[in-house]
């Protein structure tokens, strides 16, 4: 999942203009905008066939790829 997320963010959200690491803060300096966050959530929901409640889409859970993966590990059983 980690690699899938990195690939999605780089190719779909950053249009292959920039590469990121799993530790990189996704939200500073406008790297990903609000529409990007919505698309990212949609991508995860589609891939894992699950629903992510809005209350979980927070800085703590979606700050970088690593935090997204650990959130999914602990909260979404299907992973």
């Amino acid at each position: 999942m980690k690699q899938k997320l990195v690939t999605f963010i780089q190719s779909e959200l950053l249009n292959d203009q920039q590469s990121i690491t799993a530790e990189e803060d996704l939200l500073i300096s406008g790297l990903i905008d609000s529409i990007g966050v919505m698309r990212l959530v949609g991508f995860i929901e589609k891939n894992l066939e699950t629903t992510i409640p809005p209350k979980d889409v927070t800085l703590e859970n979606f700050g970088n790829v690593n935090t997204i993966v650990s959130y999914l590990d602990s909260e979404i059983a299907t992973i």
């Binding site: 803060d25 939200l27 500073i28 300096s29 406008g30 990903i32 905008d33 609000s34 990007g36 966050v37 809005p54 209350k55 979980d56 889409v57 927070t58 800085l59 703590e60 979606f62 700050g63």
Partner: peptide
């Protein structure tokens, strides 16, 4: 902060 403007649940918090 910028990140909060991207995350409505964090912004309302």
């Amino acid at each position: 902060p910028e990140p909060h403007t991207r995350m409505p649940a964090s912004m309302t918090k």
